[in-house]
Design a binder for these strands. Sequence first.
DNA 1: CGGAAAAAAGGTATTTATTCCTGTTTGATT
DNA 2: AATCAAACAGGAATAAATACCTTTTTTCCG
Lengths: 212, 212
Amino acid sequence: MLSHEKVWAAIDALASYNEMTPSGLAKRAGLDPTTFNRSKRFAGDGRPRWPSTESLAKILEATGESLKSFAGRVEAPEQRPSTTLSTLPVAGFSNVHEENAFDTTGRPTGKNWETIVFPTDHTQNIFALEVSGDALLPLYREGDLIVVAPSAAVRCGDRIVLKPSEGGLAVYTLLKRTPKTLQVQTIGDNPEKAALLHSAIEWTARIIWASQ
Amino acid sequence: MLSHEKVWAAIDALASYNEMTPSGLAKRAGLDPTTFNRSKRFAGDGRPRWPSTESLAKILEATGESLKSFAGRVEAPEQRPSTTLSTLPVAGFSNVHEENAFDTTGRPTGKNWETIVFPTDHTQNIFALEVSGDALLPLYREGDLIVVAPSAAVRCGDRIVLKPSEGGLAVYTLLKRTPKTLQVQTIGDNPEKAALLHSAIEWTARIIWASQ
DNA sequence: CGGAAAAAAGGTATTTATTCCTGTTTGATT
DNA sequence: AATCAAACAGGAATAAATACCTTTTTTCCG
């Protein structure tokens, strides 16, 4: 049965299972961080306050949990829910400035990485970066996720994430590849061309998907 | 996943299983008989209206159904397993001008659809559209795929695909939802604002991913 | 241990679901 | 075919959940 107490307990369990607080879970789901505050679970007059079904739908979508699995948390909390969908690493652009965010082959490593639900077969070592700031408008807005595949072939015209030997990650459109340089164009208003020496580039990765 | 459409279908199925109408089920649960009226499933401005979690608790208690069982109604009984490397339907924008490319709920149907490999768990009825022409530059280039989720919640600022009652699909950024209109902005160079009457819109779907 | 950030308490404004109401449609019964 | 009750459409009023906001507490990191 579905009771007020059990549904809130299930929300707490879902948050904990995903290594989040109720506040963090609400944010992940696109809700106000205070939506699931314990102090909001009863109204001022003591009446139980229920989370809305739409809020439940949002947290299930945000964590990749099925309703059946969530129902297991409500009705039989001691039983382990089934595993969630596959995930891939994601970090903010600004969080990967540090040298130890990637290993020498460009794979995400270290503590700056979180995970998001994105069904993937894990054979391409893909990862995602979260856009911060407005530099990449109108193509990528703040909060958008860019999914990149280091192993994917890159052709002229593709959009890429590039790690220079010095400095932070950058996003470009690849114009042309010459023996000594990579000719690229910045993304955003007033795009500028640049020629980057291969020797100044640690790795590049092709952007394959962008969230909207 | 828990979607607006599926939760209402599950309520209808629960009523039918118990040899009741939605009105009868609401009464049995101690709710107003008009609570589950079909005319109340969308607000006047077209926004989906969700039954509350407390109402769900009441109908489950009234019929003796567990949440797990109800979850089975929400997520299809013959549900497909969540696998990687699944596919989703894709068609070119110009190929869906014909009236029979979508059914009345906006789901792809007919012979214009192919499939692409795109990891998805198939519970959101998502599909993809392939961009043709340059109208959506610089955001979407010819050949890009836009993945859309009809069941996903749409918030202001989201990019959407919209099917008007007359004419072909269009892509917009949603600015604001008013009781009579959807205020949108075209995507592409020189974006223009427009206010579309809800009555002139068959369905909208949120764009969730775009290929690069 | 101190400082910064996240989480949470709790209040108010806004948005959204239900209740209440009237009228129409539908289905069952005679 | 007529009648009646149930179901439903749809609008307005009311109740309830979320968003927004400020402040306090807790947690984490250097």
